[in-house]
């Protein structure tokens, strides 16, 4: 089974998100980088499928050359090949991102290893949260797609996908090749092993040039939402604060 997982490099903010002076980006001076938890689970899902069914897993990102860091992380987990579609630096709109991924997939599938049986996306990217890149790629490649997956198994050439929405559990069955968007909670992502970390340093990052025009949605600027004023009341230290806490619960009518 041949699996592709699409991941996006994003900053990992802590207590708050600071912006650059021009409002065009998150100020990453003191930040590390990561990917969406949904994509960490997408990686885990892809690796688990390859462990069960044999084959290979490839990770792909559209981003600045620094996104190699996330690709090497994927390699340290066991992904066999990693692909970077380099961008000019600015974040691309969802249509352009989808076109770039579609172009890269077509390029990769024209090679000796053939088509991907499954392309796995996160449900949404952590930073921009457009909820669409996977669906667009599926459409462009004329493959069926289901997002929000909380369960994924493959039997012969059918992928079974389980998802939950508002207390309703739905099961879908997609003939392969197919596309799926997964949500955190579908699995518990593994951590890299020491050996994995070492081999990932030597992994070759294949570069594929992007194709495709910009789409109809463009970012003008980022804005920090208005801060909610804090009305902190410290109720005390340690167990001596318990009566004060219960007074609050009483006031709220919860006793």
């Amino acid at each position: 089974m041949r699996v592709l997982i699409c991941i996006k490099r994003v900053p990992a903010p802590g207590a708050r998100i600071n912006l650059t002076a021009d409002g065009q980006a998150v100020d990453t001076t003191n930040l590390g980088f990561t990917m969406s938890p949904h994509e960490e689970c997408a990686l885990e899902a892809g690796l688990a499928l390859v462990e069960t069914h044999g084959g290979s897993a490839t990770a792909l990102t559209v981003g600045r050359p620094e996104a190699e860091e996330q690709l090497r992380y994927a390699a340290s987990l066991g992904v066999t090949s990693v692909v970077l579609v380099p961008t000019d630096g600015n974040d691309w709109d969802p249509q352009r991102t989808a076109r770039a991924i579609t172009g890269a997939v077509e390029h990769l599938e024209a090679g000796a290893d053939g088509s991907f049986d499954l392309i796995i996306f996160g449900n949404e990217s952590a930073d921009s949260g457009g909820f669409q890149v996977g669906v667009r790629v599926a459409r462009a490649l004329d493959r069926p797609v289901v997002t929000g997956a909380k369960g994924l198994t493959v039997d012969e050439d059918v992928a079974s996908i389980r998802r939950e929405i508002d207390g309703v559990q739905e099961v879908y069955e997609l003939p392969l090749p197919a596309v799926v968007g997964v949500k955190e909670g579908i699995n518990l992502p593994r951590y890299p092993t020491m050996k994995g970390r070492l081999t990932s340093r030597k992994a070759t990052v294949d570069a594929i040039n992007a194709t495709g025009e910009a789409g109809g949605q463009a970012m003008v600027t980022l804005l920090s939402p208005p801060e909610v004023a804090s009305h902190l009341v410290v109720l005390g230290d340690g167990v001596t604060a318990a009566p004060a806490v219960v007074d609050v619960l009483d006031e709220l009518g919860l006793l």
Binding site: I17, V26, Q217, M219, V220, L222, P225
Partner: peptide, 9 residues
């Protein structure tokens, strides 16, 4: 936790 101003054509 963040807002974005965008233009839509």
């Amino acid at each position: 936790s963040l807002h974005e101003r965008a233009v839509l054509h």
